[in-house]
Design a protein around this nucleic acid. Structure first.
Lengths: 130, 130
DNA sequence: AATAGTATTTAGACTTAGTATAAATTTAAT
DNA sequence: ATTAAATTTATACTAAGTCTAAATACTATT
């Protein structure tokens, strides 16, 4: 792990991800870059996303869709996906430590990390206006 | 939802998945079919996997890898992946209901389902022989 | 049993998301 | 200024899966 090297491209992509409040895919990120007047090579975007993820500046979300999404919030948190409209929201409560201990004991694993994706129906989809 | 239509191909694939104790990908399933002397079209395997999943006879696992895996155990359960060797084990303890209620309350979602993938190091990788 | 209609399988083209590579460019270090 | 290392670019390629149209199989009705 060498020191952080934020090139112009990486910085631009980091800024974009940190300043949006959703969880764009690589394709969406490229589209937004283009809309902001930038034009980076395909591979640069993927390279930057990996670099920023490895550096811990952003998070890659694998929510079971075909494409990864990226999240500028790096605190430990989880996600909930609306099965009606596809919207993704943050979940800030962590799984109870007691449960994790139980899983570790039963499986004989050292548990380092857990990915949790909830699925359900969001407020707007539950209460459609008209 | 019409009545179950298990064609020869679908039955063969279902049997294969139910009789193995790991979680094969579509590619692995095709390879095993071929080794057993079957030769189904590419699309048929995917079609069958979807059909069987929709019918609730098998489960599709999205563990954050590039390919889905399939599981013959249909009871509600979760998975733990070894980050060293890639091995996947079953996790039978469910997340505490209290936690799910809390998530539902905080996010304003009706929570229907949760996918949980633990990551850690399995017993064999913790205790390598020699 | 023959016919018509529906569903499934097959083969292969196509799509999507992402990786790999080689040349060109930029950055850093002497 | 020169060399070396890292990064970007353009483009080819791969992996996983979907789509489509023709061929085949199954079902229901007479």
């Amino acid at each position: 792990m060498s020191r952080l090297n934020l090139t112009t491209q990486r910085k631009t992509i980091l800024d974009l991800i940190q300043s949006c409040d959703d969880h764009p895919t690589a394709a969406e990120i490229m589209e937004r870059l283009r809309m902001n007047g930038h034009q980076f090579a395909y591979g640069t975007v993927y390279n930057s996303l990996r670099y920023l993820t490895d550096a811990g500046l952003i998070r890659e979300l694998k929510l079971g869709e075909t494409a990864s999404r990226y999240d500028g919030r790096t605190e430990d948190h989880y996600h909930i996906v609306c099965t009606k409209c596809g919207r993704v929201d943050e979940v800030l409560s962590a799984p109870p430590a007691e449960w994790i201990r139980e899983v570790a004991a039963k499986t004989n694993y050292d548990v380092h990390h857990s990915q949790v994706v909830f699925e359900g129906v969001c407020y707007s989809c539950k209460h459609p206006k008209a």
